[in-house]
Simulated assay, not measured.
Amino acid sequence: MNDVTLEEIKEIKYLREVEKLELKEIAEITGKNFRRIGYIANKYSDYRYKKEFSEIEKQKIIKMFESGYTKKQIAGTLGRTFYSISNFLTRYYKTTNSYSLVRKNNFKIWTSEEEKYILENYKEKTARELAKDLDRTVLGVRTRIIKMRREKKLQISKKIGGYSKEFVKRLYVQ
């Protein structure tokens, strides 16, 4: 540190902490290299530059996050760091896992009509077709079929190597 005096360190600290200037501006004022100013500011200052969020920015962050934007997308849009957005959302939602608070559970309760439709059509249609007809996900239909089997509402014959017992019997009888 032979090219920086104690006076220069004090001046940089003052410009950074009191005047709240950016490193680029301090570099222009002092005539030093931008990286060198950053090094000095970080090494000799306990203060970390913190740009406060305006009320408009806060509302944008909340609205974008609740609309389903990721923290990274919000940070890119507002010109902020990922961590500043993450910290803001943590403070706003009072928890470290703010995503789970915003993400809505889309779980729909199965109606008796939907179960009846599955019972009537599971032999002829695939899970994909049933899902399309019921406006459900394929995984949701498959999970419901498994639950209906466990509840003994749905009797599906056991399969042998991908074939039902009835199919195998017909093969050997002929």
Rank of each mutant, 00 (worst) to 15 (best):
Y44K: 04
I26L: 05
K24G: 11
E8N: 05
R36Y: 15
G38F: 03
A41W: 01
T30K: 13
F34V: 09
I26F: 07
S45G: 13
L15D: 09
T30I: 12
L21T: 01
D46S: 13
S45R: 06
Y44E: 06
A27Q: 03
Y39P: 01
E25C: 03
I40D: 00
V4S: 02
D3V: 13
T5N: 06
A41K: 00
E17L: 00
V18R: 11
F34L: 13
L21C: 03
A41N: 00
A27S: 10
Y44N: 05
L23G: 11
Y39F: 13
E7S: 13
L6I: 12
F34H: 14
I37W: 01
E7D: 14
Y47V: 00
E17V: 06
G38V: 08
K10Q: 12
E25T: 09
I40L: 15
I12G: 04
I12F: 05
E28M: 14
D3E: 14
N2M: 12
L23N: 13
Y14S: 05
K10W: 05
R16H: 06
L21W: 04
I26M: 02
A27D: 04
R35Q: 14
Y47C: 01
I29A: 03
D3S: 10
N33I: 07
N2F: 06
Y44P: 00
G31K: 09
G38W: 02
E25W: 01
I37P: 02
Y47D: 01
K13T: 10
Y47T: 02
V18I: 13
Y39V: 09
R36L: 14
N42I: 03
D46V: 07
L23R: 05
L21R: 06
K20N: 11
L6R: 15
K24Y: 08
I37M: 02
T5S: 13
L21Q: 08
